[in-house]
Structures are given as C-alpha cells and as structure tokens.
Amino acid sequence: MDESVIISNVFHHVAWGTTIAVYFWLVGASAGSFVVSSFGWVFGIKRYKPLALSASVTAIILLLLVPILLIWDLGKPLRFIYLILPSYWHATGPMSWGTVLIMTYPIAMIVYSYFVIKNNELWAKIIGILSIVLALSTHWYTGVVMELNPGRFLNHTALAPLLFLTGAFISGIGLLVLILWVRNMIVSAARRIEWSLIYEMAQYMMYGLVFDAFLLFLEFMQSIYGSQNEVMGHEEVLLGVFRFPYLWMEIVFGLIVPFVILVSPLKRTRFGVIVASILVAVGVYGMRIWWVMGGQYLQTFY
C-alpha cells in the first residue's frame, strides 16, 4: 500500500514551554527539601534536627519563586487574581486545586519554621505533618495537571504523580546538599552541618534513584507495548527530538552516573556526593523538559 505524504499543514506552538519546566523543577526541589526538613521534627530522627531550618528555608525560598514564574507565564499576568476569586474558581480544573495548594503550602512551612526556631516540639510536629501533606500534594498536582489530558499520551499515565514525587525527592536532596555545602563554607565551625549526615542523605538519594529507574522502566514497558501513539511517542519524540533531555540528561547523567558514584567508595567523599547531587538536580530538570514539552510535541504537527 502506498503511504500518503502530508504536503501542507499549519503549525502550532507547544503551549507550555521552558517556564513551566523550570516551575515543575523548582516546586519539586522545594517539596524534596521539605521532606528532608521534616525527618528530624516529624519522623523523630534526632540527628536530622540541625538540618531542619536550612532545609525548610530552602523550600520556602524555592516556593516563593514559583508564583512569580507562573504569573509570568500567563497571557494576562494582571489577571492572576481570577484564580483565587470564588466567582471564577472552577472546581473541576486541576489548576484550581494547584492554586489552593501553592497558596497554603508556603504559609504552613513558614508556621512550621517558626515553631522549629522556637523549639516547640509538639506544634512543630503537628504543623510539620500538615506541611508535609501539603508538600506532597503540591507536587502531586504538578503531575496531575498534565496527566489529566487524555490527548497527551506521554503524560496520560497514572504513574505521573509518582514519577514527579520521586523526582522531587531526589532533586530536593541534591539541591539541599549543594546549599549545605555552600553554607558550610560560610558559617562558623560550630554551626556547620556534619558531613556524615550529608553522606547519609546522599544514600537516601540513591534509593530514590533506584525507585525512579524502576518507574521509568515501567513507563518504557508500557510505551513499547502500547498503542501506536505511545510507541511513536517513545521512539520519535523521547528518543528522537528529546534525546538529549531524556536519554542523556535524565537517564545517563541523571540516573546511572550518580548511582554508580553513590554505590562506589566515592559515596564517602565530598567530591563524589557533590558531583552526584549536581548531576541528579540537572537530570531531574531534563525530565521536566521532556515531560512538559515532549507530550505536546507530536501533536504540534497534527
């Protein structure tokens, strides 16, 4: 059978681009940092208590950048207020849920940080639990906002929130390690975070990497045994146009290389842990790129 060749068509843009990818990355890193922050005060692992404040402040700063990016990306930035007006709020839109989460999550974190500073065990734990639910929900929503589009077959997978949360966990730890490294260089010797603790965090990151690899493998299986759209999405878009962010940034330099570093003797060296952290943080950014743009890419020709 002779195949037809498309000779004329109009072109369409990818509706969400780099801005949204950066936003997904920042909000993920924020959620991940906050999870680390809650180790000491919520889950009761005492040796993580000195980390809590640095981690939650990192999370708050990252999350304060987020609304700026989102409002920036709107066609009508001055109309962002419509998102929170009750007469405009649309309960079925995933973005409406996100608006509520993004507004409440930083407030909860600030209250939590206040109780951490005041050394109030009980309230830090109560608000900490609330904040961690909000942290996970905020990041869950970023997965869901692209997942609930049946037309975007690369994004339309129930694994989306899990992929996002795992990415958040590892990139959050990665970024936090870098921030603590810089902090340790600045502050006095007495207030430094011990490197043994940072090495331990890097091990948690390694477990996260294994889980992330597992999820990616599930996605891969689903794609290559899937419908024509899914197969095409994997072969032509992820391994074709988005080869660099998907294959190189995320899988090779974001998963395999840091994993090798973190299981080798380098895991007890500053150099190894810092390099692994940089690679993981950048690798998760690669995932955000193919996730946001890859799903929309194929359809721009339709």
Partner: peptide, 16 residues
Amino acid sequence: NRCIGCRTCMVACPYN
C-alpha cells in the same frame, strides 16, 4: 473577559 491566558485548555485539546 475571564481568560487569563494560562493555556491549560490548549494543552488539554487533542485537536489543536
């Protein structure tokens, strides 16, 4: 008058 230009609908539309 209600649209804020967030382009969620563009992402959702399967038909461009």
